[in-house]
Design a protein around this nucleic acid. Sequence first.
DNA 1: CAGGCGTGGGC
DNA 2: TGCCCAAGCCT
Length: 298
Amino acid sequence: MPSLDVIEVLDWFDANARDLAWRKPGTTGWGVLVSEIMLQQTPVARVEPIWLAWMARWPLPSSLAAVSQGEVVRAWGKLGYPRRALRLHAAAGVIAAEHNDVVPADIDTLLALPGIGAYTARAVAAFAYGQRCPVVDTNVRRVVARAAHGAGDAGPPSTTRDLADVEALLPADPATAARASAALMELGAVVCTARAPRCGDCPVVSSCAWQRAGRPAYDGPAKAVQRFAGTDRQVRGLLLDVLRGSTDPAPKTRLDLVWSDACQRDRCLHSLVVDGLVEQTEDGRFALPGEHRQGVTK
DNA sequence: CAGGCGTGGGC
DNA sequence: TGCCCAAGCCT
């Protein structure tokens, strides 16, 4: 009873891989890193046009590092979680200054950069540099949970255990292992999906433990529900959207229009300033950071 | 370590 | 603006 034959998944991937922009030959480590940061919690379709624009405008870490934080946040557009843009900008500065403008290949060095965690560090090491290391995202966790463990979905993440779990599945050859990781992710993204898996299209359906078990429903602890409407996240998004939309600093009266609850509004504006996503100008207006002289943080 | 952090598409 | 989901990271 084979648990999960990644070679089968690899063969399927060779024939069915999506033609994503960052998978083109010649994509640099920088290109891979930018794509991975943008793809965190964000669908491929929304990322692709932004990634292409960024690569054309900022082909090197140093080119991104050279512009203001505000420009970067503005170019991030509506990808969401704009703190990612700030962290990527900071990482680019470190890469330019300390790593000769080349994205590091060493996992621990990558982990030391802002915004790069267990997944992204290994994704860069594997996809940009062909290293043999487990690359575990939500797709891989789901595929392994089903095909190997026979569960309806993955349980709560545990980085240490998840990494060991997937490491054991990887082929010995580094380049093949790296492609196998991409293949597992792709399978989870387009076939072994969370909601309605297309098992009829799955290359490992015949050996899938979840199939064998009769496709039982997920029986683990309930996953935390992420509310959005009415949260600070929504209000922060509305505030930032105003500032992205104008090159001139906005008076607070303009920002007051986006949300009726003044208390929540002010709390969110303040938190944006604390996060470095917003600056207050000398005359008391608000703007994206670094685009106007001496922002006053208060 | 559970919860905070954007945004939009699918149903 | 109901609910779930999408290549996570940070504190």
